[in-house]
């Protein structure tokens, strides 16, 4: 018996009584969203269930949508069922003014560094993370460079003519 997107969707709707929403299948990959308070419950359910078996965290990152007020930051989990070879994408949205999300490190050890990276670049505060410090950038950095309000270019540089170099 193969695990279909339809089955996963039905199971999630039954279990969480409509709190898991916005189901979509871009390029055949099931994508859905849940309130951020439920992120661990959903991940745990997907992990524990003997039919679903999403026990591998492929990737974890964030996206900044500056125009969605109140839900500017999306934290995205990519999960993999290694037995049936099925992948899904799970998103939770949070307010950028209080970007608190429960950490997934107790469920997936791999989440440790991924959450540090997400914190490093987007400033998502993973509550309960054992060591939430910058992982890639210098410790002195005082902003989150992947948030859209910060220009990509190095701002300390004075020798480049902005117009000539296509900088904004």
């Amino acid at each position: 018996m193969t695990l279909t997107n339809e089955t996963i969707k039905q199971r999630l709707i039954e279990k969480f009584e409509g709190q898991v929403v916005n189901f979509d299948e871009p390029y055949g990959m099931l994508t859905f969203e849940a309130p951020k308070e439920l992120n661990l419950k959903v991940l745990q359910y997907l992990y524990d269930d003997n039919e679903l078996k999403f026990r591998f965290l492929t990737d974890l990152q964030a996206v900044h949508y500056p125009h969605q007020e109140g839900r500017e930051l999306a934290v995205v989990y990519h999960l993999h069922n290694l037995v049936d070879n099925v992948r899904i994408r799970f998103k939770v949205f949070t307010n950028i003014l209080q970007p608190d999300i429960f950490t997934a490190t107790n469920l997936f050890a791999a989440a440790n560094w991924m959450e540090r990276e997400t914190y490093d670049y987007f400033g998502v505060n993973f509550k309960g993370h054992p060591n939430l410090i910058r992982i890639l950038n210098v410790e002195e950095m005082d902003y989150f460079p992947m948030r859209k309000e910060f220009p990509l270019e190095e701002q300390t540089r004075v020798d480049k003519d902005d117009e000539m170099f296509g900088r904004s």
């Binding site: 890639l136 950038n137 460079p145 990509l152």
Partner: peptide, 13 residues
């Protein structure tokens, strides 16, 4: 010498 093409937040200019 100058950061080169890496005009980016992570590279020393």
């Amino acid at each position: 010498s100058s950061g080169g093409i890496f005009d980016s937040y992570s590279v020393l200019q």
